[in-house]
Structure formats: C-alpha cells, structure tokens
Design a protein around this nucleic acid. Structure first.
Length: 137
DNA sequence: GTTCTAACA
DNA sequence: TGTTAGCA
C-alpha cells in the first residue's frame, strides 16, 4: 500500500497544522512530548507533520473536548495503533467472525476509569458526567 | 516573519 | 495552557 507512505509524508509546518487543527502550537508540541505524534524535523530543527499526524491531532482534540485527559487519549490512540499493526500483518485466521470495533466497550472502560480521576478536576466534572450518562443509563 | 526550547509576574 | 525570552 503506497498510500501509507503518502499519509506519512512530512508536509505541513507548525503554522499549517495549528491552522488546520485550531490547536495552539503549545498544545501540539506538548502532545508530541507525550508521544502522541512524531513529526519529522528539518535540518533547521523545524517540525514537519504528515497527514497522519494532523489526523491524530484532530482525534486528540475531539477526545479532549469530550473531557478525556492525556492519559485517556494515550490509551485510546495506543489501542488504535495496535489494531492498525494487526491489520498491517496478515492474520493467520482468514475467517474473522467476531470483529467488533470495541470502540464503545473500550470507551466505556476508559471513561469508567476517568470517573475516579474526576476528583482532581471538579470544574468539568458535571460536563463529563453528562457525557457519561450515555453509558450508564 | 516563523518556529524552537525552556521557564514562569 | 498561555505566554514570554532569546535563538536559529
């Protein structure tokens, strides 16, 4: 798949990325430190982001807006990476009967864990609980 | 003019 | 996270 090489091709500067994602450069750099993205560096030490990097940043932004913290975002993307890694390698089982996107189940688990961390952030607790109600009806 | 790192009235 | 300082 030569499409992968295109998606991972370093093309965007910090300015383009902050424009595209509406995230601050501070946030983008911080997320890189957290290992959520790995933009390439130019000879002048400037970051060059790929389409995949931008895509991940948008996912991070989306999760953050829903009240998920960095730890939660890390786990979400980590699991997504695992799935991609498996899809990249031909599974020895050609007949995959049960292939749930377990996106909801994992999210449920993660959000449940988040519930215990809410004590440190009383500000958005009500907002988060509102989102959580969807899973605990 | 833009991006980078480090640090905090 | 914002923002500022001092470089490249």
């Amino acid at each position: 798949m030569s499409d992968e090489i295109r998606r991972n091709m370093p093309l965007f500067s910090m300015g383009i990325v902050t424009d595209l994602t509406e995230l601050s450069s501070r946030q983008v750099r911080y997320y890189e430190q957290q290992g959520l993205i790995r933009p390439v560096r130019t000879k002048g030490n400037q970051r060059l982001f790929s389409f995949n990097d931008v895509d991940r940043l948008l996912q991070i932004k989306s999760l953050m807006e829903k009240g998920v913290n960095i730890a939660g975002v890390k786990e979400m993307l980590r699991e997504k990476d695992q799935q991609q890694a498996q899809e990249a390698q031909p599974e020895p089982q050609p007949q995959e009967v049960t292939k749930p996107d377990l996106s909801d189940a994992e999210l449920h688990k993660l959000l449940k864990r988040q519930l215990s961390e809410l004590g440190s952030r009383p500000n958005q607790s009500h907002l988060i609980r509102g989102e959580l109600s969807r899973f605990f009806h």
